[in-house]
Design a binder for these strands. Structure first.
Length: 835
RNA sequence: GCCCGGGUGGCGGAAUGGCAUACGCAAUCGACUUAAAAUCGAUGGCUCGCAAGGGCAUGUGGGUUCGAAUCCCACCCCGGGCACCA
């Protein structure tokens, strides 16, 4: 039967055309009721919103995209066949720097290169057969989308959650733009281009995410996310409990609050430090002997890069300010210093220094020969000579005050805070590491910030009916330290909606993370021209039931999207707090153990694989290669192996369908299978059970392996079983494989049954078929396997012991020795313990 | 430095207290073929043995258990996140 050859190039476009023509994967809003009226008659089917992170369209899709969407599509299909109405949309995160940098080099408008890339993504996603509801497709760079990004910005602005502030900001000299803290890597380099980041003082737009720190932290409890992602978010939010304590400077008379997590060490404070960026630094130093030295030090630190300043190896530096503050607990005068190890952005920009119990303060005290006073004694388990300083653990208070000495440091902490509170010198306080989100970008290819500056009225929001503020076309994208939009004079100059006078537009654009912080809401009501969404649409679909994406977005995107939902819920636009109920983070795809990159020349093109072997092979392979949450190394031989598997499956099914003749219809095994028929029927039910369990736990690799095992048995038994049994086994294999390899599975299923596999419910394993009446009993002596014997499923423990003892190789190992214990695990093994 | 992952055949991996190495790749042998490719069949950790069978193997060393890749303690190595956050 040589004419049966698996030809994905023929099969795949045929099924894709059918799905496209019939709009198979589209779902309507408000459609739950209709869908429920049908055969079931009862309650409407539950919804499921399955979403993969939207791609950034740059060039062509790569293997990582294939993995992400193959994974999400498997889940979407699985949910559909479990009877849920599945929303599975697609869009493009289409604003951003790469398109703009490309424009600077080539002069091609970012809109054009982006559109070209989107077209390529669209073509490839279709060629992969991803089951997307294309009626909801969007791109964030379209005015019909960013109009509502601007609307959200204005909502945040009116609520005081978007504000303008002059700040020391991270500036990338190469990309000529401000960066968010999150976009600067550990070495103080621009995440995107790798240039060393500088600090500049500029007026910028911020979103007040810090208002939501506590809720962003506590609401992590209720969502099903990987623990490592939750931990990363917790660390990023960085909640610290402690106290704010006021230190008074008498000349000039100013109160300086500091934040400390260790108010129990207050009596050990021996000096006081403020950050070089602190606005009072020069005022404090003015007129003292130190003025000149302070000015030099501050200038030097402000010019230092993050990398230099953040270097922990570097010895502590600083200079005295020539002033003192008073320690509120004991009235001592502490000398003030300015030092760059204190950060302006955290706490109050000033600290009390306790060198005996803080490593950084200790290093500074040693460098400047300042007194070090122990006020916490380590627990007595340690010998006094071992109690080196600094000691940062808990212990017993010493050298402090008669009221507190001898107390446990944790109890003393509370007592001292209570005392400070009563005296009006401090209070309990919580600090977060999280900073407000800087969203201004001095770049062209982004969403315009819908704000005007009027000489008379000041900062004025663009009137809602004038949205969108459309991004104008310009000729020169080259960054010059201000937004390229500033050159579009006709666009910049406008009139004030309040007084009618002359006004200028904001020329900065928004960080692209703003665009992607709400796209999942828009999908629910993508065609709405009157509003960003209708609340009933969100009620129908949100929250996302399963979100899928790379772990590289664990902090930024996922935190911002959560913040947007909370803020929009507070403003009355949403009814829920958390956008993503469950999250799955997929691992990278590498080649020869390292990240694919053009410079290494190890890029695997999905298009080439699809063309040569078909989308089903590519999708199956990427899921078969290993657990999807782990990194996977691409192997050209491995992908051939999966192709062989699909070929064998298709070929055997095609031959079986032909042999089975016109008899089609519902899949069923023979009523009372016996012998090899029973064995194959059992194997089929085993595979159904295994694949179903594995799909629920995202173990796609073992689910596919189970179908491979089933096919191996089909091949082995093809001539020994009834054709109905074989048809049932192969049809089930296709049904189980459909979420991973939809085209070939649909083709096989149709050949065998005449039915559309995606319209069939997910197969159910029959409990009775999962159990066998005999099994192989493992016989152990002293925990070592010595033999295996046939045992019947209902044998008593005593029978099993006897069987085991009678096994030939067990006998040999007993050899007259005394049995001291017998362990029986029915269905598995017997272990005889001998002496 | 702190916090997460991970370490199993030649390779990707399977097994979460009970038959270690499922499934796949690569390899070797055989069938078909003038030949090759494709396909089909067989073999399958290391080691001793003709064989039956034995011994040793899940990063290292201890422990718990009738029984440990799996649980506990200590350590080594690899990957990721955070890092002067008071």
């Amino acid at each position: 039967m040589g004419e049966h050859r698996y030809q994905p190039q023929e099969i795949e476009p045929r099924w894709q055309a059918l799905w496209e023509r019939e709009r198979t994967w589209e779902v309507t809003n408000g459609g739950a009721a209709e869908a429920g009226d049908g055969a079931r008659g009862g309650s409407p089917p539950p919804k499921s919103y399955v979403l993969e992170m939207l791609p950034y369209p740059s060039g062509e899709p790569h293997i990582g995209h294939l993995k992400c969407y193959a994974l999400g599509d498997a889940i979407a299909h699985f949910h559909r066949r479990l009877g849920r109405r599945v929303l599975h949309p697609m869009g493009y995160d289409a604003f951003g720097l790469p398109a703009e940098n490309h424009a600077i080099k080539t002069g091609v408008h970012p809109r054009e290169s982006t559109a070209e890339s989107i077209a390529s993504f669209q073509r490839q996603f279709r060629s992969w057969g991803i089951s997307v509801d294309w009626s909801r497709e969007l791109a964030t760079c379209e005015p019909s989308y960013y109009r509502w990004t601007q609307w959200i910005f204005l909502e945040l602005f009116r609520a005081g959650l978007a504000y303008r502030k002059e700040a020391a900001v991270k500036w990338c000299p190469k990309d000529q733009t401000v960066l968010a803290n999150e976009q600067v890597d550990a070495d103080g380099r621009c995440e995107r281009c790798g240039a060393l980041v500088e600090i500049r003082q500029l007026e910028q737009w911020f979103l007040r995410i810090t208002d939501y720190a506590e809720r962003l932290l506590s609401d992590l409890e209720g969502i099903e996310w990987p623990e490592n992602v939750k931990t990363m978010q917790r660390n990023w939010i960085g909640r610290s409990e402690g106290a704010e304590v006021i230190f008074r400077c008498e000349a000039p008379a100013i109160d300086y609050p500091v934040f400390t997590t260790r108010p129990d060490t207050l009596f050990g404070a021996t000096f006081f430090v403020i950050a070089p960026e602190h606005p009072d630094v020069m005022r404090l130093a003015a007129g003292t002997d130190c003025e000149h030295a302070v000015r030099e030090y501050v200038t030097h630190s402000l010019n230092e890069t993050n990398e230099e300043r953040g270097n922990l190896e570097k010895p502590k530096t600083g200079v005295p300010l020539g002033r003192t503050v008073i320690n509120p607990v004991n009235g001592e005068r502490l000398p003030m210093y300015v030092a760059d190890y204190v950060l302006m952005e955290y706490g109050t920009g000033a600290i009390m220094a306790v060198p005996a119990h803080d490593e950084r303060d200790h290093a500074f005290a040693r460098a400047f020969d300042l007194p070090i006073r122990r006020v916490i004694a380590a627990p007595e388990t340690q010998e006094p000579q071992d109690q080196e300083l600094p000691y940062t653990g808990a212990g017993v208070l010493v050298n402090s005050h008669p009221d507190f000495d001898g107390m446990d440091s944790r109890a003393a902490l509370a007592a001292i805070v209570a005392w400070l509170d009563r005296e009006g010198k401090g209070h309990a306080s919580v600090n977060y590491r999280l900073r407000d989100w800087l969203v201004s970008r001095q770049r062209y290819w982004g969403c315009p910030i819908p704000i005007l500056y009027c000489e008379r009225c000041g900062v004025v929001p663009v009137a809602e009916e004038q949205l969108p503020v459309v991004l104008p076309d310009i000729d020169d994208y080259t960054p010059k330290g201000r937004s390229p939009l500033a050159a579009a004079e006709d666009w910049v100059n406008t009139s004030c909606p309040e007084c009618g006078g002359a006004a200028r537009r904001e020329t900065d654009t928004m960080d692209t993370f703003v665009d992607s912080s709400w796209y999942f809401l828009r999908y629910c009501d993508a065609a709405n021209e009157r509003a960003a969404w209708d609340r009933s649409a969100l009620r129908e679909w949100m929250a996302v039931d399963q979100y899928i994406g790379g772990v590289e977005h664990a902090i930024l995107h996922l935190m911002y999207a959560r913040f947007f939902c909370k803020a929009l819920a507070d403003l009355g636009h949403l009814d829920f707090q958390e956008p993503f109920q469950a999250l799955f983070t997929q691992g990278m795809v590498t080649k020869d153990g390292s990240k694919m990159s053009k410079s290494k020349g190890n890029v695997v093109s999905p298009a080439a694989i699809v063309e040569r072997l078909g989308a089903d092979t590519a999708r199956c392979y990427i899921l078969f290669v290993g657990p999807p949450e782990q990194d996977a190394d691409w192997s050209d031989d491995g992908v051939e192996g999966v192709h062989r598997f699909l070929s064998r499956l298709w070929r055997l099914a095609a031959e079986t369908a032909e042999g089975a003749g016109p008899e089609a219809g519902e899949l069923a095994m023979a009523a009372m299978p016996e012998g090899e028929d029973l064995a194959l029927a059992r194997k089929t039910h085993w595979a159904i059970d295994k694949a179903s369990t594995d799909l629920r736990r995202f173990a796609f690799n073992t689910a596919i392996a189970a179908v491979m095992e089933l096919l191996n048995d089909c091949s082995r038994l093809r001539d020994a079983v009834d054709v109905r049994t074989l048809r049932f086994a192969l049809g089930s294999a296709a049904s189980l494989l459909f979420p991973f390899a939809p085209h070939v599975s649909a083709d096989i299923y149709e050949r065998l049954t005449g039915e559309r596999v995606w319209e069939q419910p997910w197969p159910q394993a029959e409990e009775a078929m999962l159990e066998s009446d005999v099994y192989e009993l493992v016989c152990q002596v002293n925990g070592k396997v010595r033999d295996r014997v046939q045992a019947s499923a209902d044998a008593s423990p005593q029978t099993l012991k006897d069987l085991c003892r009678a096994a030939p190789n067990v006998k040999a190992h007993l050899d007259g020795r005394e049995i001291v214990k017998e362990i029986v695990v029915p269905g598995k093994l017997v272990n005889l313990v001998v002496r």
